[in-house]
């Protein structure tokens, strides 16, 4: 049974008459409607890591806010764990980390988790135990007594993740969980998400960090300008066909390099190493043969498949082109 189902979710905002956007004052008297999400229909199965991907302003956060009951849809409907949105028995089983979260800067990390535990209705002893466990999990045990106003962006993100996991939720929503984190922090969040899947939990997260999404997602949906462009397993969306071959060699003679320059897609020359990017496997093998015959050696031979990033860019560019054509 799907744990998340959306049926034609749509959100249209009405812009204020006077609006300050990116530091510029904007007056709108007509055409004040702004479509943030259009007809989003998708479903997520239990135990999945589902990535909602899209560029800035694609409608990812809007979709998450609707599912969390922060805003109401203009049209459409959604169900979480088979129940309508806002059902409190379902809310008790979900965790949510918003994008760039702010938490009460006058509270310490420990007080904050204790307060949110009380909002879940957890008994005092259970709250205390879970708070310590989570502080340890997100690496903030040493900072538990510090006020949140002293937390860095990364620490804020971690305490945010901890509050999302307080009630041992079956379903976790994370809005840009890796935003603002350094590579180490991103890896830690990735590991936590993977651990949640191992525990049988469902993770629904939005991101524009595609490399991370590619590493952990079972399925992804791509949103562009509020519309769902594609949804499916990564193995289905990304072409398994080898797109190009990367051949890195050392000791290639100048004549050899020149003989392949026109046939290769790209040739990069570094001191002691040359890299050829070619489309055909035969050509890649021919380069290897010729270099080795001339006394050189092979450093790396890498067939390259389509990445999520490339696929994503194709989708976004396609959407932009279709909008351009409509205009």
């Amino acid at each position: 049974m799907p744990v998340i189902e959306t049926f034609g979710l749509t959100k249209t905002y009405v812009r204020d008459f006077i609006d300050v956007e990116h530091g510029r004052v904007r007056f709108s008297f007509w055409n004040r409607k702004v479509s943030a999400l259009r007809n989003l229909t998708l479903s997520v199965e239990a135990g999945e890591i589902f990535g909602l991907l899209g560029p800035n302003g694609a409608g990812k956060s809007t979709a998450l806010k609707i599912l969390m009951g922060i805003i109401f849809p203009t049209a459409g409907d959604a169900r979480l764990m088979g129940r309508p949105l806002g059902d409190r028995s379902v809310k008790a089983r979900i965790g949510f980390l918003p994008e760039n979260p702010y938490f009460y800067d006058y509270l310490t990390g420990r007080e904050f988790l204790n307060y949110y535990g009380a909002l879940y209705g957890m008994p005092r002893a259970a709250r205390k135990k879970k708070t310590e466990e989570l502080l340890e999990l997100v690496g903030l045990a040493d900072a538990a007594r510090l006020p949140l106003k002293g937390y860095s962006k990364g620490m804020n993100q971690r305490i945010g993740l901890a509050q999302a996991l307080l009630a041992d939720p079956d379903l976790v929503f994370l809005d840009e969980p890796q935003s603002g984190l350094d590579p180490l922090g991103r890896k830690e969040i990735r590991d936590i998400i993977l651990r949640l899947r191992e525990q049988g939990k469902t993770v629904f997260f939005s991101s524009h960090i595609l490399s991370d999404a590619e590493m952990i997602c079972d399925r992804v949906a791509i949103l562009v300008k509020g519309e769902l462009k594609n949804i499916g397993k990564l193995s289905e969306l990304l072409s398994r066909r080898v797109k190009e071959y990367e051949v890195a060699v050392a000791g290639a003679s100048k004549e050899t390099v020149e003989s392949f320059r026109d046939k290769a897609l790209r040739v990069l020359e570094n001191p002691g190493e040359t890299m050829f990017l070619v489309e055909k496997e035969e050509l890649a093998l021919e380069i290897v043969r010729k270099v080795m015959d001339g006394g050189g050696r092979l450093i790396a031979f890498t067939p390259r498949r389509e990445t999520l990033e490339e696929y994503f860019i194709t989708q976004v560019a396609g959407a932009a082109a279709s909008v351009g054509a409509q205009l």
Partner: peptide, 14 residues
């Protein structure tokens, strides 16, 4: 304003 309401609303409270 600071959007802490986002996490409050997502909790099992009305």
């Amino acid at each position: 304003d600071k959007k802490s309401i986002y996490t409050i609303v997502s909790k099992p409270i009305a």
